[in-house]
Amino acid sequence: MEIRFFQVVVPLVALLFMANQGLRYRRGRLNLGEALFSGLLWIGVALLAVFPDEISNFVAALFGFKSNTNAVLFLGLGILFYFQYRIYRLQVAQRRAITELNRQLALDRFEKAQAPS
């Protein structure tokens, strides 16, 4: 089996990220769920790099795609949508926080203005 450049580099990068996430988990910056999710994601990326044809053919057969190229394309789209969803959730949470800060500030200023000097 001929080993191509990306089949070495991508698993190494994935290993690096996994080690980093492991360290962050030990330091308490990630919870178990986040660490596991991240680990599984990078293992998936590494496996896809090492066995690109086998995995893409398997995914194509699983979901009924005609070719493995289509399978990879749709898988990629699915992952992009998922990340879009996560980013939107983050944005919603941040909007909420900004509103709360805004309201609290307004109420504090109002209270100060009402207080007899």
């Binding site: 900004i98 509103t99 805004n102 309201r103 500030l105 307004a106 109420l107 200023r109 109002f110």
Partner: peptide, 19 residues
């Protein structure tokens, strides 16, 4: 009561309820 930033009618109403 002045919101420093525009946050929408719902946020303004909730400020009224908090008051």
């Amino acid at each position: 009561v002045r919101h420093p930033l525009n946050r929408g009618a719902g946020a303004a109403c909730q400020t009224g309820i908090s008051l």
